[in-house]
Write a protein that binds this DNA or RNA. Structure first.
Lengths: 256, 256
DNA sequence: CGTACTATTGATGTAGATCAACAAAGGTGG
DNA sequence: CCACCTTTGTTGATCTACATCAATAGTACG
């Protein structure tokens, strides 16, 4: 594993395809689309890729220097300490378009590792520069706070599901969560391409590998989902939502 | 249950005891202590109390109008929908000094109810006004983002504990979490006065009432804690931390 | 063609939910 | 003051969901 920071940097001068699948739209969620400040933000962003699976974006304890958004790919967030059981470390996953690094603000250093699950393209944004820009565009602060606040809420809900649901319910919750988050970014909510092995998904849901397998089988047998390898099709979202005690607009319903 | 907004409002003109156990210090965490802007923030804050236990501070779906900080007391956060099992609704607890409402930013409306567990004193801060002040003191945005980001991380950790730990481990985690959060606000980390019934704490940890009781007994028998009613003394924090797979500075170690 | 890694399936044991009874504490009204 | 009820906590007995152990494929990759 080598330091990825030195390779695959696309010089800014060569890339002016703003908002074209890059992190800009994701970070700003449309706020700056047509503002002149969008250009300024654009200039602060640094794109990197392709980076191979396994690349460490940042490690726990590292000082927060930049926010990071995956353009294409996915990452796993994990605790720093090696546990006896190596599988008990996954804290969560980061999908394309989701801002990574906000949870580092409290201590000014990253609380977890971030490791790429697939070959990925990422955007980076020095936090210092962002602060500078935000001083001129206060809405940017508001936007970051929105994203962060949402993450709080989502995590609370998932925590509730984890502590109280059956294995099948957890899996349903996990799948709906992924679909929900992908739908937000304009990706298909019906067909999920799991960026991680099934077992790792199960593990993050607190399930043993074989329990995960059985839960997948169960959902398939009920006709709620169609699973083919890592391709998961959600056939009956309402049923899944019911099973998972999901209590918000289901993934197919786009939120504003 | 009546609308609490109309009673027990202390006119601002009568209260100039700034930073004296009020939410100001809590929200600003010392940032504005000596700045002239502290006065401005001070003027925006509205204190209320005493409010009786059971008071609904806000309900899910309500638009976000103000942030709220408990000065004395505690609150329970719960889902809006009535489940078959009424106990499966607790999302979390809010302790004195913790900002409530940031999770409402994404949708601009509160995702959960907030109900007082005890007779409490609270501070309120209209979000509009806060935005105005933050425009002049950008550090305030940063501070809010810090708090929110920290909440994200804490919730992720708890989620991990919930999904993978034994009953005793969960309880240990829950107690350490409370102690940790109280210690941050300068309260004792050794002796916890549970603001909620034990069973409700257990419930939030995904434990049945009788399992909660047994877990308490176990921790007591090991000599890790001394429990007398709602008074819990943490006798062996390292042991608890080990059991809970706690992986951060233990409550007695004050973080900067 | 072997060595990982990932997934499936069966057999077994156990942690904890559930059911049920009871005890202690706090409130309320007579 | 005491009878009464509600809330909260404890303890035992049973039952089940899931972890665990173990074996076997299927795939990918060197």
């Amino acid at each position: 594993m080598h330091d990825y920071r030195t390779d695959n940097i696309t010089p800014l001068s060569q890339r002016r395809d703003r908002c074209q699948g890059c992190g800009l739209r994701n970070i700003c969620f449309g706020i700056l689309h047509h503002a002149p400040e969008a250009d300024m933000l654009e200039r602060l962003i640094c794109r990197r890729g392709p980076l191979p699976a396994g690349t460490v974006l940042f490690e726990a304890g590292e000082p927060l220097e930049r926010l990071c958004v995956i353009r294409v790919g996915a990452a796993r967030r994990e605790r720093a300490e090696r546990c006896e059981d190596d599988n008990q470390r996954v804290i969560g996953f980061s999908l394309p378009g989701e801002v990574m690094g906000l949870d580092a603000l409290y201590e000014q250093r990253h609380p977890t590792n971030a490791v790429l699950l697939q070959n990925s393209y990422v955007c980076e944004l020095p936090f210092q520069s962002l602060q500078g820009l935000a001083a001129q565009v206060p809405q940017l602060w508001h936007q970051l706070l929105r994203l962060s606040g949402d993450a709080v809420h989502q995590n609370k809900r998932t925590r509730l599901a984890m502590s109280q649901q059956s294995a099948e319910g957890r899996l349903a919750h996990g799948l709906l969560d992924l679909a929900h988050r992908m739908a937000r970014r304009g990706m298909s909510a019906e067909t999920i391409d799991l960026p991680m092995p099934r077992q790792e998904l199960g593990n993050q849901l607190g399930l043993a590998p074989n329990t995960t397998s059985r839960a997948f089988r169960y959902l398939g047998e009920q006709g709620w989902i169609m699973a083919d390898g890592r391709q998961i099709r959600l056939l009956d979202v309402p049923a899944l939502a019911d099973l998972a005690n999901w209590s918000e607009p289901t993934p197919t319903v786009r939120s504003a």
